[in-house]
């Protein structure tokens, strides 16, 4: 565990807490893509199946349980409790366009052709693109609430910090995992446009409105 990885995990944790607080406090999930949230729940449940096969550390297990349970809670809030506030008219990204290629890629390019490993690989590939329905929704409506933009920033920052973690691990531990690295870079690149808007607008106290 190095400082980049810890900061990445904390950023990830913060993103999810911000999202849940936003939904809970405003009693609304307006502006949040339910499709992205379903993809994230799929990411965590397929990646963390090793909770039952490998024990790494208490930290690791607690975080995994947190990510699985909060992603399920988010879906419950969006599709059951605050269903009336869910903006499904703007949440129209076809997730089959992501799920099908990611499944094929997971079956073809993996470290080991075993059920758990293929599911892990699927989840890594899926995570890299899972935010697309959310970014599509923001571009479709042309804006995002400030709290939603904080959520997106923390969620994007998490994988960017993991890239520094991988550089560190490569130099100091001789460890690298190409699948995670390539997918992590793709994931971070997808946020670049948003990062730019976040830094130039939200940090200066303006709302996140896309240029017309």
């Amino acid at each position: 565990m190095n400082v980049f990885r810890l900061a990445g995990d904390l950023s990830h944790l913060l993103a999810i807490i911000i999202l849940l607080l936003k939904i809970w406090k405003t009693r609304s999930c307006a502006g949040i893509s339910g499709r992205s949230q379903i993809l994230f729940a799929l990411v965590y449940t397929t990646r963390y199946l090793d909770l039952f096969t490998n024990f790494i550390s208490l930290y690791n297990s607690v975080m995994k349980v947190f990510f699985i349970s909060t992603s399920c809670a988010t879906i419950y809030l969006m599709y059951v409790k605050f269903k009336a506030t869910y903006d499904h008219n703007h949440d129209t990204f076809r997730i089959g366009f992501l799920l099908i290629p990611v499944t094929i890629l997971g079956l073809l390019i993996n470290h080991d052709f075993t059920p758990l490993e293929v599911l892990w690989t699927f989840s890594i590939y899926l995570e890299s693109v899972a935010i697309l329905p959310q970014l599509f929704m923001v571009s479709k409506t042309g804006d995002a609430e400030t709290i939603t933009s904080h959520y997106l920033f923390c969620l994007g920052l998490y994988r960017a910090l993991y890239i520094f973690n991988w550089i560190y691990r490569y130099y100091f531990e001789g460890f690298y995992d190409l699948i995670a690295i390539v997918a992590g870079v793709v994931q971070t690149v997808l946020y670049c446009d948003f990062f730019y808007l976040y830094v130039t607008r939200v940090i200066k106290g303006k709302a996140l409105k896309l240029p017309a």
Binding site: K64, D112, G174, D177
Partner: peptide, 10 residues
């Protein structure tokens, strides 16, 4: 080395 099936990251 490349670790295949043991993933210690989240």
């Amino acid at each position: 080395d490349l670790i295949g099936t043991f993933h210690d990251e989240l």
